[in-house]
Nucleic acid binder design. Sequence first.
DNA 1: ACAAAAAGTCAACACTTGTTGACAAAAAAG
DNA 2: CTTTTTTGTCAACAAGTGTTGACTTTTTGT
Lengths: 183, 183
Amino acid sequence: MSKSSSTREKLVEAARALFWTRGYSNVSVRDITGSAGVDAALVSRYFGGKQGLFEATLAEIAPWEALAAEPDDLLAKAAASFAHPFDPEADATNVFTMLVVNVIDPEMGRMIRDLVQTKMADPLTERIGSADARERAALLLAVLFGVALMRKNFQLGGLADKSPEQLQADIIRLGRVALEINS
Amino acid sequence: MSKSSSTREKLVEAARALFWTRGYSNVSVRDITGSAGVDAALVSRYFGGKQGLFEATLAEIAPWEALAAEPDDLLAKAAASFAHPFDPEADATNVFTMLVVNVIDPEMGRMIRDLVQTKMADPLTERIGSADARERAALLLAVLFGVALMRKNFQLGGLADKSPEQLQADIIRLGRVALEINS
DNA sequence: ACAAAAAGTCAACACTTGTTGACAAAAAAG
DNA sequence: CTTTTTTGTCAACAAGTGTTGACTTTTTGT
């Protein structure tokens, strides 16, 4: 492994940890390079700029495939990703958290919106297949993103205290209700 | 009404519209003053700075009282605030939207977190009163904030197409499930 | 060992940010 | 009318932003 590749990885990892928790505009290039122990100019050299580095963090970890599973499987997987106790490091790799903090961003918001629409909402709608599938999918995502928002961003106590299994079961129950509206 | 008071109001209104939809750090003082047709220096003169202007937008509209109502009333009121068709202007006065976009902010996040904890989660927990009241309150807020997030920030189609009454009924149903977990 | 390519360092750039102080215009008070 | 206070205008500031180009160091290939 060349030294270039190593610093590339250091940059992507530091960028992911910061971008995914603070949001694109709220993280400066010097924040990332300082955290990675690398010169700031290398971001533009290796990734063409700040935006390229952000997109590199998306390309590396993109478990969109899991979201095209059956709704029940998706629900179980998503619930599992929230069910462990509050862990900042794990939250830094949580796709839901990343989407929430970056959909707010004035520069990346549109891209994130399109990503969620095409990679999550649309496949989910097709899987559900019923007449009001779009609304069911939207409500299910509202539940999942809402829990992520309360845990990571609002840091509400009630979601970290109970046992992981209990929380996971509660999320699944809510998700089932969202899916079975009008059925 | 003196001219100063008039520009004060112009500033607060323009600031609310921008801060409540884009978030604190993503809005510049010149964005606000440009929208209000006022000189940028007056923000520091009248409100002590950007932060003071933001807090002024919070002081003006703060319907926290409604959130201390009975859970069922809160649920109905919150659902009603989401039930109308997608309306950017109305969203600019939606407290849920404002809390979501500003809890992400690195400068205002802590303040917003404390606000939600003390003004929403704690009173709600007390109203519920059961053993797992904190978790129920957190799940209910997750549903409400999740719907707000999907509508305004992710702009998911499924939440704007159906009739307002139908969406409102769905939110209430989900909220009831969140409140009745383990009961 | 020598030349070529890649990787890393440093200073500076143009730009935007929030804020300040000096000054001018307008309104209020005497 | 004159003075005083308020209100608004303008230019500039210090700090932080992403990015660039020239340079040195290190690695690679022959």
